[in-house]
Nucleic acid binder design. Structure first.
Length: 303
DNA sequence: AAGACGAAAGTGGTTGA
DNA sequence: TCAACAACTTTCGTCTT
């Protein structure tokens, strides 16, 4: 399920992004689905506030393949000065210290630079998703830990950043689906999931599976459902977890199904399709879960 | 015609030998 | 490392409103 976006006009899944006009467009009927696309174009990174002002979204980068922009000075290991004369013995110890420090500075520079890039990535993602500051901070912390333990090597920084954000959302009790993060980060869902598992294992992040409850208010908002439905849904979830109908099941499926039931009971019915869309699960899953729930909880549904 | 239903085959991840 | 397995998805034909 790579692309879950459907055109609301014709239902087609052939959707493409027009970055120049910042629009998401249906290939079939031309309907403009989203005109608030995040700029994913080149972004020349800034590493301190001065550079940020000068360089953001302007012209070509200086060389960005060489980490110090090719401007750094190296101190040669030969014991000669710039005229080729050999350096007196009493200065050599000093030269040695200079070289050593320069080396150290460049290393930590590279690390800081990596972090700066990753953090700006994190900023872009979290603001694109309208996430609160605390989540962003948590994500930054996770990423920093990962960088310190050398876990980023072999993975792209974007991929690791996206995974850190996913983990942070869950830790902060505002879980987002992998699909949601995949959409704003242009990293495939699979990759984010894989990276996330890796980070969780290596960093020993204590991850409890997200509770269906945490999704409800957001889904209700997206579906334009009232607070009554929200309360009802939470009630159903409470019952369900008391009777151990929740564990082992995907929380998204449970959330979607109980929402479906609650909406019907409150006379604010939504179709399975609508709910499936916002919850990022299929109608089939909703059906299976809600069959289970209505049966085990003795809820009668009048269709 | 749209929504709901359910069977059957497929997918990716976990587990245990 | 591999096969079995559970949960979930995809697809598709059928029934209901």
């Amino acid at each position: 399920m790579e692309e879950i976006v459907r055109c609301p006009e014709c239902g087609s899944t052939r959707i493409s992004n027009d970055y120049v006009r910042a629009e998401t467009i249906c290939d079939v009927c031309g309907f403009v689905i989203d005109d608030n696309l995040i700029d994913q174009g080149p972004e020349w990174r800034a590493f301190d506030s001065e550079q940020r002002e000068k360089r953001e979204r302007t012209g070509l980068p200086m060389t960005y393949t060489i980490h110090d922009k090719g401007l750094s000075t190296t101190i040669s290991w030969a014991n000669r000065d710039s005229y080729g004369r050999s350096i007196p013995t009493r200065s050599r110890a000093q030269m040695y210290r200079l070289r050593k420090w320069q080396h150290r500075i460049r290393i930590s520079d590279a690390m800081e630079r990596n972090l700066a890039i990753a953090l700006s990535n994190l900023d872009r993602l979290s603001s694109g998703m309208g996430l609160p500051r605390t989540v962003r901070e948590t994500a930054a912390m996770i990423y920093r830990k990962a960088a310190l333990k050398n876990l980023v090597r072999g993975r792209t920084m974007e991929g690791t950043a996206a995974a850190a954000l996913y983990a942070a959302c869950r830790q902060c009790g505002v879980p987002r689906t992998l699909d949601e993060i995949a959409t704003v980060s242009r990293i495939p869902r699979k990759t984010i999931g894989r990276n996330h598992r890796y980070l969780a294992r290596e960093l020993g992040l204590k991850m409890t599976p997200p509770s269906p409850k945490e999704y409800i208010s957001r889904f209700c908002n997206k579906l334009g459902l009232s607070g009554d439905v929200q309360m009802k849904t939470l009630g159903i979830l409470k019952e369900a977890s008391d009777r151990e109908l929740v564990s082992g099941r995907g929380p998204l499926g449970i959330a979607a199904a109980s929402l479906y039931i609650a909406a019907i009971l409150c006379g604010e019915r939504r179709t399975q399709q609508e709910i499936a869309y916002v919850a990022g699960v299929t109608e089939v899953t909703i059906r299976n879960r809600y069959k289970e729930l209505t049966k085990k909880l003795d809820i009668d549904i009048i269709l």
